[in-house]
Design a protein around this nucleic acid. Structure first.
Lengths: 334, 334
DNA sequence: CTGAAAGCGCTTACAG
DNA sequence: CTGAAAGCGCTTACAG
């Protein structure tokens, strides 16, 4: 029912090959038939069947993106960055959400394989060995976002240890000596454990004591920040500053502090991590570490594009810098 | 290089047809060859080429989703709902962001057409006639989200007039008589103009005077809410309550009020619309109208699925109810 | 510059 | 139950 090359060819009285070439702008000299073909194609309302073309050319111009959850602002923003550049390169995006479930991840890797996508960008809360192997086995160019890989897969990151160090260092330079941390799940190596590590490193470098009671584990979400802060508020000696490994937890912490009748930052300074939309919605607005979310996406697709083009990557792992964003939730003691 | 049906057929010594049937579970009686085929397919690491299959079967199991911006929480959430159900139905999603640009929208409609997607879900800030016509012309099953359509395209909505009415009515019942509105752009018929209309209707029904000076136009974003509120704060007689047509503007308004040295809700009540993540991050937490964002997505794909299945839709336009969510930014005067 | 032909990898009536 | 053949709609060497 849809118009095909054949229809055009018959109507014009040439071969399909010729029509194909003309429509793809292959022949140099523009013959008369050229005009006719273009005209008839227009009249008939022809548009190419990308499926057939993809099958013949062995490339789909589709990139598969695997994420945990589309409605999560982190993934949404990274994906936004991917989309922006992909569109420039003429790629469409198939986006699949796995809920962080390993079986779902494997399932989607398989679907992308069957759909013959030209490349894959993989993001997830974790990087199970099975997924890494499955990605490798596809033979499809792949870039991993924000997860350490053991194999030769290229990846893009932020330096969680260093950026967390930067945050804590900032608090120290403000004169804080008793700094608590509300960490993400330790099980999450990068965003959880590594940010805790940065905290430890900073304390060590500045010769501050490391105290167990100042460490709380959250799950990155607001409620866990609130609960963690409630515990910290029971300490005999309160911290003067709290570094939360996510903005959401920082906001939760602020709520708990206010509820206890204390003020931020007058009584306790609070610092976040992410710089997502809630960091400016809360009161006071959060001092935080700004993740280059869009850029993570942009760079990921750029790396992927290079691989697809058959070019060599200069670096197999790229680290993007974060930005220290100073707002009103932290105060100098000096 | 990839394994094909032919490779399996040769190795087993049967025809491609047979391999195809066995792999698709077509033949009833399970012959011995069946076992062999399955075994060889496994050994060779065969997986089907979905491109070839799609071309032959004339369906792709791909749904195209056109949105304004992936990183916008509204679109991200609706898309999350779509993804959830699409995945159950065995559909993959091609997601394209247009930035609300009409030419981009037309471009992506065309790409989806060429990619032979089985269905399209269209969301945007507006619904230009050209897009509606283009969607119609594709001949592909389509569902429109949150935009009124003039043609026969099926669509899904919330009742902006009614929900806005509900919000204002709540304030009135709290005893407020002087209620301001920070509206979205009037140019946006549904989320802008219609919410303003709901406000007017409520005032009229409760016989409250409609005063021009209590109306401010914003753009749904936080800053515009702040600026609008600053103007309202210059009024000789202040409103006792403000209804903002988005949570972001409501938060902006709260910031302006606090900055002016007044309190929310003690001096001025503030109400939002959306119930997105910032409504719980701000202080006080927002009373708001909760949009069923995930459900909008879920219902959209369900409608689409019915159309694809060739079933009749009972209704061409479905309206999903919102929920009045009472938190701490509004206070009773009674 | 253009056509005939093979190929991309599947599916599916139609015979047998 | 199974095979040969045509078809899905393109692309692309290879001749001419």
């Amino acid at each position: 029912m849809a118009v095909t090359l054949k229809d055009i060819a018959e109507k014009v009285g040439v071969s399909e090959s010729t029509v194909s070439r003309v429509l793809n702008g292959i022949p140099k000299a523009s013959s008369e038939t050229r005009e006719r073909i273009l005209k008839v194609a227009e009249e008939l309302g022809y548009y190419p069947n990308d499926l057939a073309r993809s099958l013949a050319k062995q490339k789909t111009h589709i990139i598969g993106v695997i994420i945990t959850d589309i409605s999560n602002s982190y993934f949404a923003s990274v994906t936004g960055g991917i989309e922006e550049i992909a569109s420039l390169f003429g790629y469409s995006l198939i986006i699949s959400a796995t809920g962080g479930n390993e079986n779902e991840e494997l399932k989607y890797i398989n679907i992308l394989k069957e759909k013959r996508v030209d490349g894959i960008i993989f993001m997830s809360g974790r990087m199970p060995h099975s997924c890494e192997q499955a990605l490798l086995d596809t033979g499809i160019p792949t870039v991993v976002v924000a997860r350490k890989v053991k194999s030769s897969l290229p990846s893009i990151h932020i330096d969680n240890i260093g950026e967390s160090y930067k945050a804590v260092e900032y608090l120290i330079k403000l004169g804080h000596r008793r700094i608590a941390i509300i960490s993400g799940t330790f099980a999450d190596k990068e965003s959880g454990y590594h940010r805790l590590l940065g905290y430890k490193n900073a304390l060590a470098d500045y010769e501050l004591p490391f105290e167990e009671e100042l460490i709380e584990e959250g799950d990155f979400k607001m409620d866990s920040g609130r609960r963690a802060m409630e515990k910290l508020l029971k300490l005999k000696e309160l911290p003067t500053a709290v570094f939360a490994a996510s903005d959401a937890m920082a906001v939760g912490a602020i709520k708990a502090i206010k509820k206890a009748g204390l003020r931020v930052p007058e009584d306790i300074s609070v610092m976040g991590f992410d710089n997502n939309v809630i960091s400016q919605a809360c009161d006071p607005e959060l001092t935080t570490i700004g993740q280059p979310v869009k850029d993570l996406g942009r760079k990921a697709i750029e790396m992927l594009y290079k691989i697809i083009q058959g070019k060599k990557l200069e670096k197999m792992a790229i680290y993007l810098p974060c930005e220290l964003i100073i707002r009103n939730s932290t105060k100098s003691l000096i």
